[in-house]
Design a protein around this nucleic acid. Structure first.
Lengths: 330, 330
DNA sequence: TGAATTTAAGAAAAGCTTTTCGTGAGGTAG
DNA sequence: CTACCTCACGAAAAGCTTTTCTTAAATTCA
């Protein structure tokens, strides 16, 4: 059906070696023959078989990507960044989603091994020793996003979530808040759960609060959990500000406050995390910690490709964040 | 570095052929040898090289996907559906983004050819004869999403946008609207631009309006264009309802109306398209035409895989849609 | 027991490209 | 004119797995 290099060679009246030399521009081919081969290539639309090439070069120009959920805007921005950057280096991506399910994650690793990807970018709520051990006899360059995983052979890239949450909490205090509650993520989520909580904790303690006085509810990053936990908090305590561990929960909280007749930001200020596309257009627009996931994807792709090319790459890369002040705070 | 089947064979004291038979469970191997091979496989974590396999079988179990922008929630849901379905059939996806740029789209096709994907799912604002001709000497099964492209060898899957827009317009009329304006997409976008406009047109004409009386502004699907066009419309005409060609523009319109002191839905009703995740949580929540992109992705993946497996597949698949009535209409 | 099957397993080819190696032609220099 | 070099190009091996073909051994049946 589809042509191979021998067919092209025959059509051009040369050997496969010569065709290969023309395709790869590796010289040592007579101008006249080159013309003839190029003409045949043009006419036939022949494309060299990347499988055969990969077999020889032990290189596929492919990255394996694992994200928990591509329909989450954070991850889709991240993947977009990866894809754009990768393409500029002539790499492609195999995309997989894991729903944070350990078995699926491991399946992806196995598949990546079989398909001989040149590098792997992993993102998930946690990357553990258990994950690591699945990779032990593999030499594929590996990068973890969203977590600081200490290991000689693994690149990790992350924002300093603790510091970001600390800054966010301080911002609320500086805007006059006295009783801040946090609607956080699950604490086993090292980055967006645990670290952000720790930032909230340290800013609160610095303010003179005792750890056991803190108001903290553990959500699952959905709008609904933000809504429900907001309700729960209002039933228990009098508060004047909310720090949510992501924008969805913050939006859920705002919606709840609106439904119950509280004014945002006058009675309760609300702050989110991530700077989701919705944050800007919601009414009121949401003050939040902006994380540039697209940029993160570009950085991640660049780092892993550099690693593939044996360039020097930092083991840990810290991403920037930024407080974006909008109408949900005073 | 990494082991190959010969190494495994040596370690197990058998020939590569026998190892292959064990791996593929193709029988004719003595129980004792099988055990030994399995043990070696287990111990070494050996994974057969998918490139070599692909070379022999002329099959990669990989689909090539083109979408304009993965960070657009519609497409990320679509891709999620594809990925999940594909995985259940033991396929993986190479994801590319095109920004609706013809040259990039063609580059993707070329790359897919080189990488020998088994099938291609294409989504973009338009798939034209020019695209088609790029594929002419290719035998890779091909599917177009979001457009009805008549061609023997191409599967197209789409919603009936014209009918959906017709239904949406009729809904607004039924809720008492007299002067409906449309904020549409570019007309060269066959599906979300042209077809949705035609639906609006036919419902309006059916209502007794003359085509030249219609109020129609052409946006680019962004929030900002919705906002600006809303403003433009208000400056020209008195209207009591808006049909937008997507939710983003509808939201932009609502924001504009709010800023200018109009009450939605009492003074102006607004209706969107797609049922973006934001539609439900916005304030007021948005009445819209729900399209299940996730489901569409699953259907598309199933169709292309069936085609790859030489099963009978409809040339045209029409997707369902649904009117979701919320607070932006009466 | 002898003939006919069945089972097990290895050797080798095929799938496609790149790269090394070798060879012949043509050119340069001494 | 001879020795050496360069250039152009083809043959063949390598990269890894599967599958066909053979063959040898074991089993079955009469």
């Amino acid at each position: 059906m589809s042509l191979n290099i021998k067919d092209i060679a025959k059509l051009a009246g040369v050997s496969p070696a010569t065709v290969s030399r023309v395709i790869n521009n590796s010289g040592n081919v007579n101008e006249e023959n080159k013309e003839r081969v190029l003409k045949v290539l043009e006419e036939t639309g022949y494309k060299p078989n990347a499988l055969a090439r990969g077999l020889i070069h032990k290189k596929t120009n492919t990255l394996g990507i694992v994200v928990p959920d591509i329909s989450n805007i954070n991850f889709s921005e991240f993947v977009k960044g990866i894809e754009n950057q990768a393409r500029s280096y002539d790499y492609n991506i195999i995309l997989t989603t894991s729903e944070n399910n350990f078995n699926k994650e491991v399946e992806c690793f196995e598949m990546f091994k079989e398909k001989r990807v040149d590098g792997i970018i992993f993102s998930g709520t946690r990357f553990t020793e258990k994950h690591k051990s699945e990779l032990d006899n593999s030499t594929i360059p590996f990068l973890v996003f969203g977590q600081n995983f200490e290991h000689e052979k693994i690149i990790s890239i992350n924002i300093n979530n603790q510091k970001a949450a600390y800054d966010a909490t301080k911002l609320l205090f500086s805007k006059g808040a006295k009783n801040i509650a946090m609607i956080g993520g699950p604490l086993w989520d090292r980055a967006a759960g645990y670290d952000r909580f720790m930032g909230f904790l340290s800013a609160s303690v610095e303010r003179g609060l005792k750890p056991n006085e803190l108001i903290y509810e553990e959500g699952d990053f959905t709008i609904k959990s933000g809504y429900n936990l907001m309700k729960a908090i209002l039933n228990k305590k009098k508060i004047d500000a909310i720090l949510a561990a992501n924008d969805f929960m913050a939006l859920g909280a705002i919606k709840c406050l609106a439904d119950l007749g509280y004014s945002v930001p006058n009675e309760v200020q609300v702050m989110g995390f991530d700077d989701n596309i919705i944050a800007e257009i919601y009414n009121p627009s949401l003050t939040t910690v902006k994380i540039n996931f697209y940029e993160a994807g570009k950085i991640a792709a660049k780092a892993i490709i550099d690693k593939i090319n044996k360039l020097k790459v930092d083991k840990y890369i810290e991403l920037k964040y930024e407080l974006v002040i909008r109408k949900s705070t005073i």
